[in-house]
């Protein structure tokens, strides 16, 4: 596809980012959640998965889902620099999505964490996978973090002992930024981050189907 000059000037320069190697985690239910990196071609599916949550006020799903929706579009259509999206699936069904971006080679920025399926600590696993990507695969020194949901935010802040750095601004808004440093990551990683690699090819094949969830615990009686 030929990209015209005006469009080209609207696109941020791209850094070559090493891909996130897929992994799988055995959840408490015994189900295996595969975490893999989504591509731009996957975005339309992910948008469909997120869309129902945009109107769920409880637990700030609406804000998180609406912003993630916009960020997914921005990723797909080249409007944010060096964004990435990781998706969690169980038997191919989308159960959660996380995203973020590289600010520069040293600093990463966490955007959002959405767990669609509840009760299996999926959000915590996907958040950890996102930190793993920044620290262990992109080789970054720190990740800037804020959040809209008080529960998620306090959980990250307390459990990872995030460093408060109100002098640094986060793109998501004016709340004081917290930082996961490399040292904090190394300290907490053993208790927070798990999973196995490589993902067996047939399991990864199923994961890439990105099947839309048929139910949302946040939306009783949901029908697609």
């Amino acid at each position: 596809m030929i990209v015209d000059k005006l469009e080209q000037s609207l696109r941020p320069p791209e850094t070559n980012m090493p891909p996130y190697p897929p992994k799988y985690i055995t959840l408490a239910s015994g189900e295996k959640m595969v975490v893999h990196q989504a591509s731009r071609e996957d975005v339309p599916r992910l948008l469909e998965a997120v869309r129902p949550l945009v109107t769920v006020e409880k637990d700030f799903y609406d804000i998180v889902a609406a912003r993630l929706y916009a960020e997914l579009l921005a990723y797909q259509r080249y409007r944010v620099k060096d964004e990435y999206v990781l998706v969690g699936t169980i038997d191919g069904v989308i159960v959660g999505i996380v995203n973020g971006r590289m600010v520069d080679d040293k600093v990463g920025m966490s955007y959002h964490t959405v767990a669609i399926k509840r009760g299996l600590r999926i959000g915590a696993q996907l958040f950890a996978a996102k930190m793993e990507y920044h620290m262990d695969y992109l080789g970054q020194q720190e990740v800037l973090i804020v959040a809209e949901s008080p529960i998620g935010y306090r959980r990250w802040m307390i459990e990872y002992e995030l460093e408060s750095r109100p002098s640094t601004w986060h793109e998501l808004g004016g709340v004081p930024t917290h930082v996961l440093t490399k040292a904090l990551w190394e300290k907490h990683k053993p208790m927070k981050c798990t999973g196995r690699r490589p993902v067996p090819p047939e399991m990864l094949e199923v994961a890439k189907k990105l099947i839309l969830p048929s139910e949302y615990p946040q939306i009783p009686g949901f029908k697609r």
Partner: peptide, 29 residues
């Protein structure tokens, strides 16, 4: 809770310490 945890997953699997972490040692989630 309408969900049966897998005995293997919550206590034997190598992911168990993270997916079923300690709440107050030696008690887990």
């Amino acid at each position: 809770i309408q969900l049966v945890p897998s005995f293997h997953a919550i206590i034997e699997d190598e992911d168990a310490p993270v997916i079923n972490p300690y709440v107050a040692e030696p008690l887990r989630v």
